[in-house]
Design a binder for these strands. Sequence first.
DNA 1: ACCTGAACACCGTTCAAGT
DNA 2: ACCTGAACACCGTTCAAGT
Lengths: 197, 197
Amino acid sequence: MSSTRETLIAVAARLLDAGGPAAVTLRAVGQAAGVSHNAPYRHFADKTALLAAIAARELQGGPVEGGGPTDIESLMRGYVRWAAERPERFKLTFGRWEAGSDELAETATAARGRFVDAVARAQADGRLPQADPERLTALLLALAHGAADLALSGHLARDGKGRADPEMLLADLFEHLARSTASAAEAARLPANGEPR
Amino acid sequence: MSSTRETLIAVAARLLDAGGPAAVTLRAVGQAAGVSHNAPYRHFADKTALLAAIAARELQGGPVEGGGPTDIESLMRGYVRWAAERPERFKLTFGRWEAGSDELAETATAARGRFVDAVARAQADGRLPQADPERLTALLLALAHGAADLALSGHLARDGKGRADPEMLLADLFEHLARSTASAAEAARLPANGEPR
DNA sequence: ACCTGAACACCGTTCAAGT
DNA sequence: ACCTGAACACCGTTCAAGT
């Protein structure tokens, strides 16, 4: 039912990819969907709600689709690659959602849950340091997000020796964390083990 | 000379802070500056150029003003605090500058230079691991940027146990890096010292 | 329940004209 | 060299009306 709604979302996402947010006008969406320019108002409260629907759809099936590898390194790599390949959807999804829809917030929380699980597994394997899994996940996601965003706005890529792309920075962080894990394991062999769980 | 130009930038920045990018219309800027709504075209090629001028001014004197502390921890804290206090300017500065002005790119490069210097000093003090300073700077900036941006879009703050704000994540990263540094120093005591300078 | 066409207020940009 | 007022095309949103 209401296939028009899905059509509008798909059409709007395509316009977004092709021409950026400026190209997503209700008139263009309507024309591409074969309806009038104000038919969207029967399915969405306003233009913002339509954009929020794109972002929600992206958070559900987008960055880490089901079926692929589930180790934390692969998940993070998938995140930065998604940002590089679909920059407009990435910018939209993590853009300004001042009083954004509750649905979007819940979807984001669910998506983060998969990352937390992967982090916990890596901790159990000794590949990540012991720490609160949610907080460590936030650290990893913040780095991936920041690297991806800086790369898109041209504040990261350099031509010379200091060149760095998001995947490199991700690898660097994992290496530093691995060393930090080893250091903590060393300390644990001493009689006084002060490392909180 | 041309004080009108500076006035237009200042007025536009004030409108941006007050009401977000939607509030920055050439008509509102002109009215607040006491000129007609198309007088800005005598000083800027178009609206984008005016916004770029705001971003450039922000990059120069904004996040890390001269005179304050210059250690890397304080610089990074200043960055995330600036983002939290002036979210609209932060979003604008690191927003979409597709074919952005060259001046803006140069200003950004110069601003990053101060961070690289601070990182190099921290490395000399043994507070940060040995690595390419530019690349380590990129890692730190990416985390600060990502944490600040996720916090602004509500994808970071949680109510429960997993709560994390940008300054906490920054402190976590510095702690992990310090442990990584200690681990590398341990390894350096062994006969085979494989850590490249 | 869903869609249309006309209309309104607003915006970025251009242009002829003024000093 | 800098500014103004009118005008143009475009946009989000509303509303009366249609099926």
